[in-house]
Amino acid sequence: MVDYAAFIDVFADYARTISRRYDVGDVMYRLADQVVEVLPVDGAGVSVADPDGGLQFVSATHEDVVRVEGVQITLGEGPCQDAFRTGASVVSDDLRDDGRWARYRTEARDAGFLAVAGIPMRADEQKIGALDLYRRDAGSWSEEDVATAQTLADMASGYILNAITLNESEELSERLRNALDSRVVIEQAKGILAERHGVPTADAFERLRRHARSTRNRIHDVARQVVEDDLRL
Score class of each variant (00 low, 15 high):
residue 1 M to K: 10
residue 2 V to R: 03
residue 4 Y to G: 09
residue 5 A to E: 06
residue 7 F to C: 08
residue 9 D to A: 09
residue 10 V to K: 07
residue 11 F to T: 13
residue 13 D to H: 14
residue 16 R to N: 15
residue 16 R to K: 15
residue 17 T to F: 02
residue 17 T to R: 04
residue 24 V to S: 12
residue 24 V to H: 08
residue 25 G to L: 07
residue 26 D to S: 15
residue 28 M to Q: 09
residue 29 Y to P: 02
residue 29 Y to M: 10
residue 30 R to C: 09
residue 33 D to I: 01
residue 33 D to R: 06
residue 34 Q to V: 00
residue 36 V to R: 01
residue 37 E to M: 03
residue 39 L to E: 02
residue 40 P to A: 12
residue 40 P to W: 10
residue 41 V to Q: 01
residue 42 D to K: 11
residue 43 G to Y: 07
residue 43 G to T: 01
residue 44 A to H: 04
residue 45 G to F: 03
residue 50 D to Q: 02
residue 50 D to N: 14
residue 51 P to Y: 08
residue 51 P to H: 10
residue 52 D to V: 00
residue 56 Q to N: 13
residue 59 S to W: 06
residue 61 T to H: 07
residue 61 T to L: 05
residue 64 D to V: 06
residue 64 D to H: 14
residue 70 G to R: 13
residue 71 V to Q: 11
residue 75 L to Y: 05
residue 75 L to N: 06
residue 81 Q to K: 12
residue 82 D to H: 05
residue 85 R to H: 00
residue 85 R to S: 04
residue 85 R to C: 00
residue 89 S to L: 05
residue 91 V to M: 12
residue 93 D to C: 11
residue 94 D to N: 13
residue 94 D to V: 04
residue 95 L to E: 09
residue 98 D to G: 04
residue 100 R to G: 10
residue 101 W to L: 05
residue 102 A to D: 06
residue 102 A to E: 07
residue 103 R to L: 13
residue 104 Y to V: 00
residue 108 A to S: 10
residue 111 A to D: 04
residue 115 A to W: 02
residue 116 V to Q: 05
residue 116 V to A: 08
residue 117 A to D: 05
residue 118 G to T: 01
residue 120 P to R: 03
residue 124 D to T: 11
residue 125 E to I: 13
residue 126 Q to L: 15
residue 127 K to M: 08
residue 128 I to M: 14
residue 130 A to L: 04
residue 134 Y to R: 03
residue 135 R to W: 11
residue 135 R to Y: 12
residue 136 R to E: 13
residue 138 A to C: 09
residue 141 W to L: 08
residue 144 E to P: 05
residue 148 T to S: 08
residue 150 Q to N: 05
residue 152 L to H: 07
residue 153 A to D: 03
residue 154 D to K: 14
residue 154 D to E: 13
residue 154 D to N: 15
residue 155 M to P: 13
residue 158 G to V: 11
residue 158 G to H: 11
residue 159 Y to F: 15
residue 159 Y to P: 15
residue 161 L to W: 13
residue 162 N to F: 02
residue 163 A to M: 11
residue 166 L to S: 10
residue 168 E to K: 12
residue 169 S to G: 15
residue 170 E to F: 14
residue 170 E to G: 14
residue 170 E to C: 14
residue 172 L to D: 15
residue 173 S to I: 10
residue 175 R to K: 15
residue 176 L to H: 13
residue 177 R to V: 11
residue 178 N to F: 10
residue 184 V to K: 08
residue 184 V to E: 07
residue 188 Q to C: 05
residue 188 Q to Y: 01
residue 188 Q to N: 10
residue 193 L to M: 01
residue 198 G to Y: 04
residue 198 G to Q: 06
residue 199 V to A: 10
residue 200 P to V: 04
residue 200 P to S: 11
residue 205 F to N: 13
residue 206 E to W: 03
residue 206 E to D: 09
residue 210 R to G: 06
residue 211 H to I: 01
residue 212 A to D: 00
residue 215 T to C: 00
residue 218 R to S: 02
residue 219 I to E: 07
residue 224 R to N: 03
residue 226 V to Q: 01
residue 228 E to G: 02
residue 228 E to L: 02
residue 231 L to V: 01
residue 231 L to T: 00
residue 232 R to Q: 02
residue 233 L to W: 04
residue 233 L to V: 06
